[in-house]
Nucleic acid binder design. Structure first.
Lengths: 231, 231
DNA sequence: GCAAAAGTGTTTGGATTACACCCATGC
DNA sequence: GCATGGGTGTAATCCAAACACTTTTGC
């Protein structure tokens, strides 16, 4: 019935790649590592590795991210699967992309295992990466952008306390177009924000107010179907 | 560096599952096959099979759908990948879900290979399926529903000529809520439809007008960024 | 005072909602 | 005639875009 023996189907490997996105200085950035081993030694790459044959995918994604960058407690979501027969020089390796959103300032990352260095690179400025990682990054960033428009996940990228301008810049980078300040602020009126008494410091203009998301309130309302996030 | 030999990673198999969605009688339906072989012999299942170690994923999806159901020329899109180590009783098999939208009336399907029967089943009424196929169906139907709201793919589900009521019913089934007829028709004013002189027949009430989508015009406008589909 | 960015108000036109009403067909 | 769904109009309301304006800080 099959053109090969049934047992010969069990000859492939698979890997996960972890696309970690953060936001600073008005740009969405992604975490890259420098490979210290072949293939693609000394190339920059998305953190990723082979999955053990008895390992579940989400756990593998956590483990691999931790081993290469030291990051823990990062909630990852599955994106696209890439399976071109020629994408890996050492055999058939299907890779499943996972992505996560993090607050860059709250993290300490450090290269380990076979990662020589780690770096945050603005998504729109990355150069040539190992394997088909440019394609993977592009597809996953597209997906992130779509998600940002329909689900309240921008909260995970912004710092704990942020200005409304930073909030706006995040969406401007995501969509690639500038927004009108007044209209943007009217639009987000429906989102439950907490205003702090504390203000921005060390700026040579009028200091902006700092806000946080009221996560509890927001989740309550989501459950009650009182609002649909839409940007 | 690894806990097992490098070569031992190459011991997994992977499959694709093809979720084919259609729309008739006011319901979105999916194509199921009855398995004639173990495991899960005589269970209903999503059409799917193992991918050859040197075969590309999209081509495998086409081949497998053709072998089991006779369907050809169906454009498939990748959805989620399911990889729980215990999901297949005969070894580690990762499965990648692909989905497609088709016009049921234009197709002739017939069971072949190890499929005993094929059947169109309303998505919201399917019973227990083989493997983790209920989970796969649910996740993929969710994804389809989201896509229906943001991209003009409803065209692929409706018959070539359709009534505005059928159009409305498709979205009502997708969202699970009824719409106001007059308002629905105002909303779709922006979509380029062609009205036929021909009308509905064999109904015991006033016959409805038949419409088709003006695909060319629609694509032109998409390219010019003149409209964003939103339902 | 001036530059720079924070922050707000007003107008306008287009979309969304709720609801009522008329029309064509089979029986 | 009447049941059944097809098809349309209106008024109230909400929302988004465009744009101008005021405020607060550092220098």
């Amino acid at each position: 019935m099959y053109k090969i023996e049934f047992s010969d189907f069990f000859s492939s490997a698979f890997s996960v790649d972890c696309l970690i996105f953060g936001f600073t200085e008005g740009k969405i950035k992604t975490l890259l590592i420098k490979r210290s081993i072949e293939p693609y030694k000394d190339y920059w790459a998305i953190p990723g590795d082979l999955v053990y044959p008895d390992e579940d995918l989400p756990l593998a994604a956590e483990r691999i991210l931790r081993e290469l960058t030291g990051l823990t407690n990062v909630q990852m979501h599955q994106a696209h699967t890439f399976g071109s027969p020629s994408r890996h020089p050492q055999g058939r390796v299907i890779t499943i992309a996972y992505y996560a959103l993090v607050r860059i300032e709250e993290l300490s990352i450090k290269a380990s295992s076979w990662a020589d260095e780690v770096r945050w690179e603005p998504v729109l400025e990355v150069g040539d990466l190992a394997f088909d990682h440019n394609e993977i990054l592009e597809a996953t960033f597209d997906r992130l952008n779509k998600q940002l428009s329909i689900e309240p996940i921008c909260f995970e990228l912004l710092p704990e306390k942020f200005t409304l301008n930073e909030f706006q810049q995040l969406f401007e980078y995501s969509k690639g177009i500038p927004f009108d300040k007044a209209n943007f602020r009217k639009k987000i009126k429906g989102i439950p924000l907490v205003k702090h008494t504390e203000k921005q410091t060390n700026v040579k203009h009028r200091p902006a107010n700092l806000f946080s998301f009221n996560t509890c309130k927001e989740l309550d309302r989501l459950e009650e179907n009182e609002w649909a996030f839409k940007m």
